[in-house]
Design a protein around this nucleic acid. Structure first.
Lengths: 142, 142
DNA sequence: CTAACTGCAAAAGCTTTGCTTTTCA
DNA sequence: TGAAAAGCAAAGCTTTTGCAGTTAG
């Protein structure tokens, strides 16, 4: 456990917003200005393997990491791509309920909710009902 | 509707394997050797906007496209990343059943199953039960 | 002392964009 | 003829990798 690795772990644990590798990098860089992105990626991988953090496979462009290693679901904002937690008990056993149209052996599932975060809801009054491709407003600080 | 666009549409409709942009590109290239990747991407976007095909946001590295525009779920092979259909009636209304831990306005969900496709199952006898990170065998033709 | 790890830079994938030329209604 | 689209090349972003120097047990 090197200084870098424990700083990275600390950063993930203190950032409760499901940070991306880049956000973690920026956070750690405030304390270790010379750390490199490669070190961040490599350590996130190792920490996830060790079960100290959770690697999230969400649908945004960037992977995200979670201090919370319990199985739970997330909601992603279509406006700013931020990710939040939802309280919903895992759909255990759902795999056995489906008919297999393809011959696959089903091992598990991943469920992600889509929504609008509080900040983005305040920006765009009733985002619902538009027809354009309105998912590109990526900066909630506008 | 240019020649290119209709060839791309035709390719998606004839390839029932949820092809990636690259696979579509290769398919169309057999008939139009000069078509470019940019044209493929731009047209897939347009065709999806028009509702003629469906853009799938799966978790693999590449986006996929589906001739079937009805809402349905998919299963992705952890071995080769191929995507198949599963027969499972959509979880409509699931959004209202969850407690919101984050203040998000929930709009929808996306559900993806993880599994092993028939070809990969034949390659690795009982893939279940291993402890390593065994997801990297990406070529089912080995 | 040896194995693991860091930092840097470069590369790898996938997707998008700028620009000029071509096509089509 | 004018708007939309094609083709090419380059750039953008995220993530991974090779390598030489450094660190830690």
């Amino acid at each position: 456990m090197t200084r870098q690795r424990s700083q990275i772990l600390e950063e993930v644990r203190s950032n409760r917003n499901h940070p991306t590798a880049d956000q973690i990098y920026e956070g750690v860089r405030r304390k270790m200005p010379n750390i490199s992105m490669a070190t961040v990626y490599r350590n996130l991988e190792i920490l996830a393997e060790q079960g100290l953090i959770q690697k999230l496979e969400t649908q945004g462009k960037s992977r995200r990491y979670d201090y919370n290693t319990f199985r739970h679901y997330h909601v992603r904002c279509i406006g700013c791509d931020e990710v939040g937690d939802v309280l919903f008990h895992p759909l255990d056993g759902i795999e056995s309920k489906l008919e297999d149209a393809s011959g696959y052996e089903i091992l598990g599932h991943s469920l992600e909710f889509i929504g609008v975060c509080p900040r983005c809801r305040d920006k765009k009054p009733t985002a619902t009902g538009s027809k354009g491709k309105n998912q590109s407003t990526n900066d909630p600080t506008n």
